[in-house]
Design a protein around this nucleic acid. Structure first.
Lengths: 118, 118
DNA sequence: TCTCGATATATCCGAAGTGGATATATCCAA
DNA sequence: TTGGATATATCCACTTCGGATATATCGAGA
């Protein structure tokens, strides 16, 4: 069973949970999601990706689910979704990050004028 | 643009930069700031703290400055402040985190039931 | 003055996390 | 049927982290 104490969430762990926020997804889709949502500034290689998923499952934050009927069947894919424990952890981490961003914003460290970079 | 090789910012590195956002501070104050602003959920031990500061200085994101005249002199303290490079890095990281928080928020992962401290 | 606990910095070590290479297999389109 | 993209899995070297230990200074009070 997963422990009672909240296991600390690694950066990669949070990325994966975010990718699963909209529902279930398979590993490779998580990888593409993270790269996409961070504009390529965060990249999960296969090592970090599958190791992180395995750890999240072991900690009870994520569980494997069966494939979707709507999608074309692909035997290779393994789908995952957050557990309620995982949702809790994601909320806690989001709260923390939001607080940090707030502090940074108050200090003028939010450079929103950054869109097209050279 | 300048930052061709932006040195990656570790979580601890970002915490330290945030603590220096309001001006200069010495290491021990950084430690207390981090613990305070995160409600104790993030704690930088001496190992991580001074190692991280040393790395930031080596990477040119932070520089040591002389002590303040207004404060009572304490020979032990070593004060630091962000360089312009450090400010850039902090802004970039803040942008990234803000984007992640936005994604989480859209997915209902912001447990705002806990607003400003009670 | 002398002692003692809090403050402050520094370093070391084992544990954990990361990045990238490698391996293997399946899917799909040409 | 062949090849490139998709998909998962594991291994190894490197970095980072957390905590213990060490050392020294400051300030308050006996």
């Amino acid at each position: 069973m997963a422990d009672r104490n909240p296991p600390p969430l690694t950066p990669a762990g949070y990325q994966v949970l975010l990718a699963l926020a909209d529902g279930k997804a398979h590993g490779y889709a998580v990888m593409r999601f993270v790269e996409d949502v961070t504009n390529g500034s965060v990249q999960l290689g296969p090592g970090t990706l599958y190791r992180t998923i395995a750890r999240l499952v072991a900690d009870g934050l994520v569980e494997e689910v069966s494939g979707d009927d709507s999608e074309p069947h692909d035997a290779r894919r393994r789908y995952y979704r957050m557990t309620s424990l995982g949702i809790d952890a994601a909320k806690r981490e989001t709260d923390l990050l939001a607080r940090l961003v707030g502090v940074a914003e108050n200090a003028g460290l939010l450079d929103s004028a950054r869109r097209s970079t050279a």
